[in-house]
Design a protein around this nucleic acid. Structure first.
Lengths: 349, 349
DNA sequence: ATGAAAGCGCTAACAC
DNA sequence: GTGTTAGCGCTTTCAT
């Protein structure tokens, strides 16, 4: 050990729970009696790098002995690009939905050697700016900007500084690629499940808030009706807030009609409707067939009877967004990429 | 512009959605006609660095003009420590719980200038090893290892290589600091809400799976009973699976007893119990008062009547873990740090 | 008040 | 086959 090579490496962090001992390539080189270049070659299994078997072994041993970990940050400095993908979300915790986007993105990113840098912003513009700025400073490969429910968003200007993909949201201008659920297909699928079960008088509970879901799912409903030769009856379409209370509230109106089935805006609405139906001593699906939307598992899989529904493809959107970002999938031009909402068959139809 | 300074910066990434133009400190220095050292000083507002007002202005202008962003990675290389905190989760998407841990951790980390590197492992040991390894290579300040429900875990060996804190789980050996919910206090609080409402015959639905929750909450229940001078009746304690089906299943048994109130293992159990109660034409809370546990908002806030419950402090656990990791809070020795489970008053009591 | 230069850990020419 | 060396973008002494 030469005197210039201090035994004591740089002091560890102070405060908090501690750790020290950063073992570097130089340390390995020294112990193995080779140059850092050689160490680099064996660490990276460099193709076309001719390293002697003995040297290779000595390096391997030294690595095992000293517990060497390559410094990904230094690597990044050299190569110019990091293995980070940023994900800015407006509400990680509110619903399991954001979680599924994160998981889809993370799994797909992982496959390609990338890691997720996540930031929650609660929709706060300042937090958003800061988050994006921090990601940019960390030289992310790109940024996924996600919303927890499908809607148009005002894209933060800083996003233009890097590759970006919108997840479960889109920019009206269409300047940034987006991945969103196929609401129309979802609405159609939900309705078809009912039609296939023989229903002809199918009510539709729509949300009161203007959104792609409101427009798209209704269109899907009408498309399905039309395809089945069933005439659309506007009287069967009801607006309600998109939660349990909303579903419970329109229950009476629907039950007083001659509908035999209902498409609900989402699972929560269906859950409220269940209560209304039960209160009147009626049964699902015998007296009224119900289909939900979202496949919010805590609800749909466990109400009585378990709810037949259509799943919102959050996981797939996260994954697709990463593929788009990485150039593995091709962007479908200026229009958002539509992800299918698959049917989930349970017992309410 | 000297010939050695190519106008065209390093080629951007290829494939995927592109971006280029990494503006460096050298570019700024050149444009501002100063040295990189000076640029560094003004960028970091270095205390005690004497920079002329004119030079400072020129640098500022150049930064604005060229759109310079400091390279956080290079900074890290120099300083030795990064601003990353790793978060390894076993199930980001399954429940909103993991999301709340992430959010708590991320908010607290953010406050101290740290960013979260998240990895999902689905409980897969290989994925876990890889995730931790990747975090170590990125020289994280420390790692948060979290479970989505409170339990003992086998701590991956690699965790020993860095600062680590367990979240919503603990190691039997106690070698790593942990942050967990105070199950006993939670059980006591739940029971007290009932006692305060005048109930004396209080049933308790426990989970069938062995866990700190199973043991702790029951103890809290008994503590509360004892403190109120109510004798513990083992016949009032029922085991059931910890979901809606479980709650529904024990409903009949409980209703056939003379209990006037029930502590449920969690909100899902309570939701199932609601169904059983309703089926018999009984009302909550008039005929039976119910308290849940977890405060799983989609359920608790929206069943009819809204459920009085006790919240699992996921957000706080995430935040506390970060504070522990950073040395802002002190670790309570070998025992896990207990986080309070606060009561949430709604209408089922 | 400002600049030159060393060096953080690593990769990739290019020597030998 | 293996070593030397020049950076990657930045911070920080130490001169000037």
């Amino acid at each position: 050990m030469t005197p210039e090579q201090p035994t004591e490496p740089h002091a560890g962090h102070t405060g908090g729970i501690e750790r020290a001992t950063p073992v570097t390539m130089r340390d390995i080189a020294q112990v193995a009696g080779v140059s850092v270049a050689t160490v680099s070659y064996v660490v990276n299994d460099k193709a076309g790098a001719r390293v002697g078997a003995d040297a290779r072994d000595r390096v391997r041993n030294a690595i095992a002995e000293l517990g060497y970990r390559p410094n990904a940050l230094a690597k990044t400095l050299v190569s110019g690009h990091s293995k980070f993908i940023g994900l800015v979300a407006d509400a990680i915790a509110t619903t399991p939905f954001a979680g599924r986007i994160i998981q889809g993105a993370q799994d797909e990113a992982w496959k390609h050697g990338y890691v997720l840098l996540v930031a929650n912003t609660d929709g706060n513009a300042d937090a958003e700016r800061e988050a994006i700025s921090m990601m940019l400073e960390h030289k992310v490969r790109g940024i996924l900007y996600s919303a927890w429910f499908h809607r148009a968003v005002a894209v933060p200007a800083a996003l233009a500084e890097t590759a970006a993909v919108l997840v479960d949201c889109y920019s009206e201008a269409g300047e940034i690629p987006a991945v969103v659920p196929d609401e129309v297909q979802g609405g159609r699928t939900a309705t078809e499940m009912l039609i296939e079960a023989g229903h002809r008088r199918i009510a539709f509970i729509n949300t009161t808030s203007p959104s792609p879901a409101r427009i798209g799912r209704l269109k899907g409903y009408r498309d399905a009706l039309e395809a089945a030769g069933i005439e659309f009856d506007p009287g069967l379409v009801h607006d309600a807030s998109s939660d349990q209370e909303g579903g419970y509230g329109v229950g009476e109106k629907i039950l007083s009609q001659d509908a035999t089935a209902v498409c609900c805006h989402n699972d929560r609405v269906a859950m409220g409707l269940y209560d209304a139906v039960r209160e009147r001593g009626l049964r699902i699906p015998q007296d009224l067939a119900v289909v939900g939307f979202d496949d919010q598992e805590v609800i749909s899989a466990h109400v009585r009877p378990p709810l037949t529904t259509v799943a919102l493809p959050h996981y797939e959107m996260g994954a697709a967004a990463v593929r788009l970002l990485l150039g593995i999938d091709k962007s479908p031009g200026r229009d958002p990429m539509l992800i299918q909402c698959p049917p989930v068959y349970r017992d309410s139809v």
